[in-house]
Amino acid sequence: MAGVLVLGEALEGAAAASTLEAIAAGRALGGPVAAAIIGDGAKSAAQDAIAHGADSAFVCEGGLGPEAAAAFAEQTAAASAPRVVLGAKALLDGSVMARAAYRLGAGLLQDCASVALDADGRLTATRPVYGGNAMAAFRASGSPAAASLRARAYEALERDDSRAGSIVPIEVDAAAHTRLRVVERVRRPQEGVRLEDARVVVGGGRGLGGPEAFAQLEELARLLRGAVGASRAACDAGWVPPSYQIGLTGRTVAPDLYLAVGISGASQHMAGCSGARDIVAINKDAGANIFKEARFGVVGDWRQVLPAFVDQLHELLSDR
């Protein structure tokens, strides 16, 4: 059928948001889209996938690791002979797209912002390179070609429960394929909203000068019912845990409002927040890169600007 194969995952019985985004990208290429869903509750997640635009689905039940997922990808590709393979960059542990592409002999473009087909049906894609300092466009020389997608590069299609499609279970011999053994999972308890789900994100960077300042950002985030993130510099300095990192190699956020305090706006950071509808920046350096993408900016010392801003905010929001 020479269409698009989307590699996706089930999270607690529902298709992952990133999987639905990849299906939307596959439909934008013209489809038909076969979704290969792995994970706990893959079968019900496959219903989601079809309702959100997939034409058919393969399912593999169980909380399997990236090695089994690569084997599943190989088996589903053999069954569907796709011209294009798509999936979220962060699928499972973030290695599955690269594993699958190598096994399929497909070239892979990672972390793509957009994908398309040219007049000859060859896959083209754009992606940030050089830490986000440049954008590159590529065209596949052959087929199949694979692309992994940046979080939120595509918006999931509206759910349509009248859509129907075949759901084919695939057996993967997980034991034969699995050499990595997860001994322990350590999760930091999530306080408040998840960064990716927050409508408002308050980010702090090197300019804050130390960990203490993040208490003020947390207070501001609570006030705006948002979440706190940070630049890589602030994480590497140990001021906040690594899970706060927003950027090319950290988390990708696309809130309505991103309030950046003491963040210079290096390209690798902007790659994780440029999807924000509005960016507001407080920074002492008028030449800081963050101001190139900000709607509002204050050039000043955050120690003076922020408390006054928060006080004013209390007043403005009290009549809400």
């Binding site: 892979l108 590159a136 900000a294």
Partner: peptide
Amino acid sequence: AFELTDLRLPETAKLTE
């Protein structure tokens, strides 16, 4: 496997107030 067809600086032309 892929030909590089374009390489450019990203466009960021927001007017900051």
